[in-house]
Amino acid sequence: MNRRVALQRTALALGFTISTSTAGMLLKSCTSREEKNIPTNILSPIQAKLVDELNECILPTTDTPGAKTLQVVKFVDLMLEEVFSEEKRTSFLKELNAFAQVAQSNLGSPFYESTFESQNTFLQTWVNEHVAVDQDSSQRTFFQTLKEVAMLGYYASEQIGENILPYNPIPGNYDGCVDLEEG
């Protein structure tokens, strides 16, 4: 086991992580697919569209809002700009462009212009080939990085944290054993 994982385990076990909790009420969402440029600092307008679509594939709109509605792409752009090392940012953008190319040659049109269904079908095939099987591929690093950042931008957002997940910033006391609905 690598040191980072072991450390995370230790930190987790000692209770220092932010905990997410039970499912709360589900919100109906109404997303419109209107096209406009998303303001970004690192991603080009085309890269931003691509990441926006990829985010939505990972975290799609259901009866809860999806990544697009929450503009998770803006968070990805911010993380690229302010949190990624230059090396990590460069390799992320390189792999993003490589993904765009292979997607376009397979789909016959840019990924971000394809239907949600064909995007998903292609992404699943691509993931099966590069992410699920080959543990050390640069594609895997790219996808897992995007997925982790998108999930952080989504689940740790105000909209999800306050409205979908149970929000209780000052619990006041601790009950060690309650029914799921109360937790």
Binding site: S21, T22, P171, N173, Y174, D175, C177
Partner: peptide, 8 residues
Amino acid sequence: DKHYKGTR
């Protein structure tokens, strides 16, 4: 079906 309430 069980959980806890509060972050200990």
